[in-house]
Computed example of a mutant assay.
Amino acid sequence: MKKSLLFCGVAALAFASCTQNEVLDVNENRAIGFNAFSGKATRTVSDITGTGGGTFTQFNIYGSYKKSTGNAVNILTNEDVTYSSGWGYTNTQYWTDATYNFVAYSNGNAKIVYNEDENNISYTHDGGLTISNYNVATEKKDLVVATQTKTVNSGDLSGTIAPVELTFNHVLSKVKFTITPKGFPSYQTVKVTELKIRGSKTVGKFSSNGSAWSEQGTPADIVYAEIANINTTYTPDECYVLPQSLVDGVDVVFTVTVNDGNTDIMRKSFTVDLHNLTLSEWKKGNAYNYTTEITPQDVDSNIKEIKFTVNETVGWITPESDGSDDNVDQDLGL
């Protein structure tokens, strides 16, 4: 079995504030605006990608500032920022001379709502963003996060202040499996079913300070949907997983069934320890493609390939002892 590693790049995505709200006598140049950049993804069904919208249509932002004296002031709390013909938010804020901290996230273009019982999302000026009890097996979304600090001096307020540059990074890992049947006769149909990742930690806590995952919960299965018949290479959709060590034992299990057109003639379940493949962890923002070929012998060790050997006779007609030759040319008389 082979493995390959894909890294996510970066693609530009413009974003700016729009609606003025409540404050009517402030220089428009002082409105807080943003430029956002999202990681370019590989093939999948729900990655956040695109420029000027694309599949990236919403993120949420926290923002606060602290002057040289006094406590931090929160100005944006899980604020919706959406894309139509352009990016905008309704609770427009304006610059003052202070040091600002911003943290933005998008949970597959969805908002994570604060739940008092689970306390699953919170923010402080110095502590940053914390997302608790994030269950990757049930969310099944691309979670991206961006952080930025910006200091504005009093002299900056008379001119145009450049937008805040936000670079969104994918903070989960992605896993997919490429399974190729090899050596099966054309009349046989190969089916892969019951594919799942077993023993991975699926619930974790993310902190934007350090961009790290911690307090990962009890291991659980990540189950793929039923897989159709395959006669060529099969590559199911990628699966989002928590970045984590694999040394505690993370397996992939699946079943291969072979049908001859009338009945199932072979069936076998496979278990592969992913840590034994020399890869010790899934890293944040990386995508992993596990590849393998399945042969008839893998499914049934009693299956033996039909082989032929050949003996070559040189000068296949042997002259008779009386000098005659059985190799006689015949005139067809045409």
Rank of each mutant, 00 (worst) to 15 (best):
Ile230Asp: 03
Glu238Thr: 10
Tyr240Trp: 12
Thr180Trp: 06
Ser211Phe: 14
Leu24Asn: 13
Phe15Ile: 12
Gln216Lys: 15
Asn231Ser: 15
Trp87Asn: 08
Asp264Ala: 08
Thr49Val: 11
Leu172Ala: 06
Thr49Glu: 03
Thr90Met: 04
Gly108Asn: 06
Thr96Leu: 03
Ala287Met: 10
Thr49Cys: 07
Phe34Tyr: 10
Asn120Met: 05
Thr167Trp: 06
Thr69Gln: 09
Val152Asn: 10
Pro219Asn: 02
Thr232Arg: 14
Lys307His: 04
Glu194Met: 08
Glu139Gln: 15
Asn209Tyr: 06
Tyr114Met: 02
Phe177Pro: 01
Gln20Arg: 15
Asn74Pro: 07
Val258Ser: 07
Gln148Trp: 08
Phe308Ser: 12
Thr278Asn: 14
Tyr240Leu: 06
Gly39Met: 04
Asp97His: 11
Leu195Trp: 03
Glu215Gly: 08
Lys3Ala: 08
Val136Ile: 15
Thr130Gln: 12
Gly217Ala: 08
Thr180Pro: 12
Phe184Ala: 09
Ile32Val: 15
Thr271Ser: 11
Ser68Lys: 13
Leu334Ser: 02
Ser321Phe: 01
Thr77Ala: 12
Gly249Ser: 13
Ile32Thr: 13
Leu279Asn: 13
Asp25Ser: 15
Asp47Glu: 10
Val113Tyr: 03
Gly261Arg: 05
Leu279Ile: 08
Gly128Lys: 07
Val10Glu: 12
